[in-house]
Amino acid sequence: MTGHRFARLAAWAAGAAAVGVGGWAGLVSGALPADLGVGRRTRRLGPRTVDIAAPRGVVFDLIAQPYLGRTTRAMREKVKVLERGSDMVLAAHYTPLGDRWTAVTVETVRFTRPERVDFRLVRGPVPYVVESFTLTAQDAGTRLVYEGVLGTDLWRAGQWWGQKVAGRWEETVAASLASVQQEAERRAARR
């Protein structure tokens, strides 16, 4: 193989690798959404139930605060409201993926006071996600139930990707629910 031919082959391989890495990074971070509409497979998210020793209104207000009210300093790193209506917002959610990557999802968030918050994915690492938080008043406080559906394209390859994304997605939701429980119970105790 001549030096010129080898240089062209090396340049082509480096370009293909850069496109592959860039595509992977874009898919993982949500910057390059892939909604092809073929071979759609769905899987459930949750359900996850959390009993919270706080009134339903306190829990609802806590969930809605970063979207409908003033975003706290701690939440500014996680949520940015892009557009706000009376009962719905368009919000970007930032989830760290290790030291180097941050996944960005854009979702509509709809509020039905005081019993429900619905999320619908607009842009992210998968083409389809719908989720809900349902709040039910209980004698000892509030029962919060999280459930949803995540969908991917491209048959088995998409199903494999959906399993990877769903695991991280549900970990993030579980951490969020634990935070909501802790803060709602703290607020209720102050009353």
Rank of each mutant, 00 (worst) to 15 (best):
Q182R: 14
A184C: 13
E183F: 07
G46P: 05
R116L: 12
P127N: 10
R110F: 02
V117I: 10
H4C: 10
A91C: 05
T152W: 01
T152F: 02
A189G: 10
A17M: 13
F111R: 01
S29M: 11
A74I: 04
A178N: 12
A174Q: 11
A174E: 13
T172W: 09
F6M: 14
P114E: 10
R110A: 15
V122G: 06
A166I: 09
R43F: 04
A174L: 04
G162W: 03
G3M: 07
K78A: 08
T95A: 07
T105V: 11
R100L: 14
V38P: 00
T112N: 10
P127H: 07
A34P: 01
G148F: 00
G20Q: 11
A166E: 03
G148M: 00
P125L: 05
R73M: 01
E147V: 00
A16N: 06
A178D: 15
A17Y: 07
P47V: 03
T42Y: 14
W101R: 12
E77K: 09
H4Y: 15
R100T: 12
D99F: 13
T108M: 11
A16V: 15
A188W: 14
L32E: 03
W101D: 10
A92L: 05
T49C: 02
T142H: 02
L90M: 11
P33I: 08
A13Y: 10
V79A: 03
G85Y: 00
V122N: 06
R113M: 03
Y128C: 02
